[in-house]
Design a binder for these strands. Structure first.
Lengths: 107, 107
DNA sequence: CTTTATTATCGTAATATTGCAATATTACGA
DNA sequence: TCGTAATATTGCAATATTACGATAATAAAG
């Protein structure tokens, strides 16, 4: 086994799980936090800042990017990564609407 | 490898990742949603409702419970699970405060 | 006491994730 | 062109997660 049976669940539920997975690793949370805190843009700084290998950081950036949360563009050799704030707020809204609908009805 | 290097990150960041991991599987999202929607309490209903084996559902319940999100008590043979709404709102606040602090500063 | 219903736990197989070294790839500067 | 810097990709090795059958534990019913 080991395969998540996504086909069992509704799109809405699967989406929430997919978005949550982006935040489910501390490196990715740290990356998002760092990107958001910097005045200018970042790139390889994340490697020295966070302390994981360049390959690993790049991999995490891909995961975050696949969720639509990043905008990256090359400026010469360096790539400037920054937050896609529209997408970020969209995801935040979806998660929050789930939170709001979830209440305590028993016990 | 395969081990998340938690010791690299701050407690705050690790906490966010840990909480997010609870929501990072559709079965757990579905369980929380279902528990919240039911008038009374549930138990083995989740198995027939969601369509995963009893062992699997029980495992997911443990994960959700370990995050402090469930209150469960036996009523005879049946165990009534329900949401620990205080804890739920606490986690919601922690996640939201991260979201709020995250903004777009470049590009 | 025996059976049945309900939930938890154990063991295991399959798959996913994490992390890194090595290796591309791409762009700039000398 | 050549070397260097920055990032991406590939190919593992180690560990984690997911799922389920089998089994244990517990309590009610008969």
């Amino acid at each position: 086994m080991g395969v998540t049976k996504r086909f069992i669940f509704t799109d809405q539920i699967n989406d929430i799980a997919t978005f949550a997975k982006v935040f489910a690793h501390p490196a990715r949370v740290a990356i998002l936090k760092y990107i958001s805190e910097q005045e200018g843009c970042i790139c390889n700084d994340l490697v020295s800042e966070i302390g994981l290998s360049q390959a690993t950081i790049s991999q995490h950036l891909t995961v975050i990017g696949d969720a639509g949360l990043l905008q990256g563009r090359f400026e010469g050799k360096k790539k400037c990564y920054c937050l896609n704030i529209t997408r970020f707020e969209e995801i935040q809204m979806i998660l929050n609407s789930f939170f709001k609908k979830t209440t305590n009805n028993c016990c």
